[in-house]
């Protein structure tokens, strides 16, 4: 026991090293979990489990955002995708009933699988290319604190990207109106409508 502690002591691990190692291993573990979960989405026979794997994948992505200091994005990822969209998915699965798919290797499945394999190959290729573009400018703790915060994202959205942002919100409004009109007013053929 004593020897073991001495050995650890001799590495002289300080806070930063431990933290860095810890973060790297966390990124690796979470990333692998995300990949496994996304594999689960496409390989699972039962729709409920597919949806659950998708939720797991989204939560893993949110955790990756969190590790890279983008806490606002992480939480938005969970609120919007995992919290709202996936609930509706589960809702639909519950209402339509979940039938397990039969597993058989047809031509379509083969094509789909080979396509997935191709994408994976591409992913591996992109890993070989090298480092991604580094963040420009001075990197100080203050800057790092600022990057992922709600304030920074808000200022960026409402100054540099105000027009696309408003256009997107308009698009969402149109979609909402469309859904309400589809759900509320059932479409009748023209001839019947004139008669009433």
């Amino acid at each position: 026991m004593m020897e073991f502690l001495d050995q650890l002591w001799s590495f002289n691990l300080d806070r930063e090293t431990v933290y860095g190692l810890f973060q790297q291993s966390l990124v690796f573990i979470i990333g692998m979990t995300a990949i496994l979960a996304s594999l689960g989405v496409i390989l699972c026979a039962s729709p409920i489990y597919s949806a659950l794997y998708l939720i797991g994948n989204m939560v893993c992505l949110a955790m990756l955002f969190l590790l890279f200091n983008a806490e606002f994005l992480a939480v938005v990822q969970v609120v919007v995708y995992a919290g709202a969209v996936m609930i509706l998915f589960l809702f639909i699965i519950a209402l339509l009933g979940s039938k397990e798919e039969k597993r058989e290797l047809s031509f379509q499945n083969f094509t789909a699988l080979s396509f997935v394999g191709l994408l994976f190959g591409e992913l591996l290729m992109s890993m070989m290319v090298g480092e991604t573009k580094p963040v420009l400018g001075q990197v100080t703790p203050e800057v790092v604190q600022q990057v992922g915060s709600a304030k920074a994202i808000g200022i960026e959205l409402f100054s540099n990207h105000i027009v696309p942002f408003e256009l997107a919100s308009l698009l969402l409004l149109v979609a909402a109106v469309g859904i309400i009109s589809l759900a509320k007013f059932s479409y009748k053929p023209l001839r019947k409508r004139t008669r009433t």
């Binding site: 939560v59 806490e71 919290g83 609930i87």
Partner: peptide, 18 residues
């Protein structure tokens, strides 16, 4: 003590629906 404490609470509690 999170900078986005309020959002975090909403996010996690919305996961509770699952």
């Amino acid at each position: 003590n999170l900078n986005i404490g309020l959002l975090f609470i909403f996010a996690v509690s919305s996961m509770g629906i699952y």
